[in-house]
Computed example of a mutant assay.
Amino acid sequence: MHPSNIVLLEFHPERDELCYGKELRDGLSVALRMGSSLWLANDESVSIERLTVCDEDSTGKSSFTRGHRQYALHDYFDLPLPPHGESPDDINEADIEGLACDGKYLWLAGSHSLRRKQPKDGDGIKKAHKRLASVSADGNRYLLGRIPVVPDGDGYTLEKEAVVKDKRRTAAMLRGDCHGNELTALLRQDEHLGPFLAIPGKDNGFDIEGLAVAGKHLLLGLRGPVLRGWAVVVEIALVDDDAPGRLRLAPLDQDGRLYRKHFLDLRGLGIRDLCVQGKDVLVLAGPTMDLDGPVQLLRWRGAAQPGKDTVLAAGALERVLELPFGRGVDHPEGIALFATGKDGAASLLVVHDSASPSRQIGDSTLVADVFTLPRRGRRKGEAS
């Protein structure tokens, strides 16, 4: 399917200092629109980016952005590692793979995954073997937290602390350290997910790549593991801890459970992003391994109001779109509701990892795709 519209994402050409080894526009992992503010992140950075969306051009087929502002995550969180490693070019990335908003806070999720090194061109056999055996846990990847959002014109900005209607809001993150956090410690004992926490994300190991707010709970979509074709969503609730700037897991129900698991038959694909639309959650499904496509957009009905564990067969998921992808480039990685047209039809913004040269304009502009979403049909017996 071809996009119905495009958006020109214009980044400041001198904002790459918090991004490892590539430009911000080359490797966008997540997107979220709030009013005129479009939030984005590169998965090899330790920041999030805000662009301001402007009106469509005269053709009505493209929109553009301006006013790039960068928010360094260390300004809001006490991350376990500093922004830079041994050299200025060595970034201790947060690998942000999830953004969501509940109207009060911007929620962020790092991948929580281990990383295996890749052989480089020119490596001999011995060095290639050594790289493939090197697995690391980058402490900033275990970020799961929130930042207060406050109005800024017709968009939003972030504050470490904010007072809104006499209520104080503060940035905070789940308790953890360089080796994990409270969630990963709990999941290590899980019969389904525990064995995969010791496996790198790109090897079908534990890897968060989607975040959605569902009432007072959070849904964490996993790119991996995929279990016999079934993808996993972990549901949790977070509340303030006694320690400033820290959150802790809270019970989901009267039984005191600290997490739920939802299994979705994506026929071998993993979850690459989640996006709430009304009472539903849109699921971006793609390869769990480092492969080209297929990429699908599916509708998980009622998921924004969870209340019990779910095992959802493939036929129970509504197929919305088949998204295009490239060979080695242009992998759909992040989705966001973008606009609602005069006819009431909603549209979806898609950003890509490994952006192709054809998407890159000048020194700092990137072309992102917008797709018109089919109207949501009602099932027999379903109330409007």
Rank of each mutant, 00 (worst) to 15 (best):
L297I: 12
M289T: 09
P294R: 06
L266D: 05
A304T: 07
V295Q: 02
G334C: 07
Q296S: 10
R272V: 02
D343N: 15
V295G: 00
F338K: 03
C275S: 12
E318V: 12
R301A: 12
D280L: 06
I335E: 05
P287V: 09
F325P: 00
P287I: 08
P306F: 05
D309C: 13
I271T: 04
G270A: 05
A285D: 03
G286F: 00
P294S: 09
V283I: 13
L274W: 04
F338E: 00
L297H: 01
L284W: 04
V281L: 03
L284N: 06
D280A: 05
E318L: 08
G344V: 12
G315Q: 13
L282Q: 04
H331F: 12
G341H: 11
E333C: 12
G334H: 03
P306I: 00
Q296C: 08
D290V: 13
L284P: 02
V320M: 13
G286T: 00
E322G: 07
V276R: 15
V311R: 15
G334Y: 03
G270R: 00
L323H: 02
L312I: 13
V329Q: 12
Q277E: 15
E333D: 10
E322A: 13
L291Q: 14
V311S: 14
A313F: 10
R327W: 05
R299S: 07
A316H: 11
G341N: 13
V281T: 09
E318W: 03
V311N: 13
I335S: 04
E318Q: 13
L323M: 04
A285G: 05
G315D: 15
G341M: 07
L291R: 14
L312G: 00
P324E: 08
F325T: 01
D330T: 05
I335G: 05
G278S: 08
K342N: 14
A303F: 05
G286W: 00
A339R: 11
A285Y: 03
V320L: 10
I335P: 07
D290E: 14
V311T: 14
D273E: 11
L266T: 05
L297D: 00
L298W: 11
E318H: 10
V283Q: 01
E318A: 11
T310D: 15
V283R: 02
G293C: 06
F338Q: 01
V311K: 13
R299I: 01
A336C: 09
L298T: 01
A336F: 07
V329S: 12
D343H: 10
A314D: 15
P324G: 01
D343S: 14
F338T: 02
D309W: 05
G328Y: 05
K342L: 15
G270N: 08
G278K: 07
R299T: 01
G286Y: 00
L297S: 03
Q277H: 12
